[in-house]
């Protein structure tokens, strides 16, 4: 399949040299360096390790047993069941919302960025430079500083407290457009477009059947970026949504955490355990997707960061 092999193409010009270098250095290894980096790794994995342990404990055991090891009565399944059934299964609803918001945003943002990136890379038209520079300038505008103004505008037109309030702002990804333009310039050769035109293909057909396939690796990168940023988004849904049944998992978990903090952590309530187990459940899908697709990150970031 082209999508799995192609990402290596972005830095392809230099790959042969890189490979030969790896080979010549392969015989020298530094133990101190390895140890230092493993220590760093331990720091980055510590909170995740703690989270896995904590998800197996009842709220009482969280307080009464050592945080970095299992208690005498691990109860992961009890916690998972309670997390998924608490408040009529609202947690499942939050996960589903997150999947929908992140999925629609990521696919939409990637398609919009691909079409516009292709348009900017392969066509010249009036306002070409000005519009592209306008979007580039927007990379500097912080999304959070934009969120309150967007809320005020959405409140005016009645979009607040609907899924669109979260999805629409996530569709515009200026950095994604920038990546796609750079990617399209190299990945879609002018000669291929030219040949298709001579064969009588329309511009839309060229884009959807030809260019989009060649753009696939870059497209995956933008999908991943938007997916992670929408999946992890907190500020925007926090201000846009009041209805708990519309919450994504981030806002839902923070509301549980506040509940656990404000006296919900009594002996009868298992709220704190629900927060830790819910946290674990919410990060599993993304971490798995991440590890499986990690090569795309690197190639996508390489083409964005290295281009002179």
């Amino acid at each position: 399949m082209t999508t799995t092999t192609a990402p290596d193409r972005a830095p392809a010009r230099t790959v042969p040299g890189v490979r030969s270098r790896r080979r010549t250095q392969a015989h020298r290894r530094s133990t101190p360096l390895t140890i230092a980096m493993l220590a760093a790794l331990a720091y980055f994995l510590l909170p995740l390790f703690w989270l896995v342990i904590a998800s197996t404990k009842s709220t009482q055991d969280l307080f009464n047993s050592f945080g970095l090891w299992f208690s005498h009565a691990p109860q992961l399944w009890t916690n998972v069941r309670q997390t998924l059934t608490y408040d009529n299964g609202v947690f499942g609803r939050w996960l589903l919302n997150t999947v929908v918001y992140a999925g629609v945003s990521a696919l939409g943002a990637a398609m919009l960025a691909a079409a516009a990136g292709y348009g900017f890379a392969k066509f010249r038209f009036r306002g070409h430079g000005a519009s592209f520079n306008l979007v580039l300038g927007a990379i500097m505008v912080p999304t959070t500083a934009l969120a309150i103004p967007t809320y005020l505008l959405f409140a005016k037109v009645g979009l607040v407290n609907t899924p669109w309030a979260v999805i629409l702002p996530s569709l515009i990804n200026p950095f994604g457009l920038y990546l796609m333009r750079i990617y399209a310039e190299d990945a879609v050769p002018d000669s291929v477009i030219e040949a298709a035109r001579i064969d009588g293909a329309g511009e839309a057909r060229i884009f959807f059947t030809l260019a989009l396939r060649l753009l696939a690796p870059g497209l995956v990168t933008v999908v991943l970026f938007t997916l992670v940023s929408t999946w992890n988004n907190y500020f925007l849904p926090l201000i846009m949504l009041n209805d708990p049944s519309l919450y994504p998992v981030t806002v839902g978990l923070s509301s549980w955490a506040a509940q656990a903090q404000n006296g919900g952590a009594g002996a009868s309530s298992n709220m704190l355990a629900l927060v830790t187990t819910g946290s674990l459940l919410s990060i599993i899908p993304l971490v798995v997707a991440f590890l499986l697709l990690q090569r795309y990150w690197q190639s996508g970031l390489a083409s964005g960061a290295v281009k002179q």
Binding site: F44, L45, P47, L48, V228, W231, N232, Y234, V249, T250, V251, L253, S254, S282, I283, L286, V287, A289, F290, L291
Partner: peptide
């Protein structure tokens, strides 16, 4: 991997 973990 921490980049895949929501800031929340």
């Amino acid at each position: 991997v921490p980049y895949a973990v929501p800031s929340v």
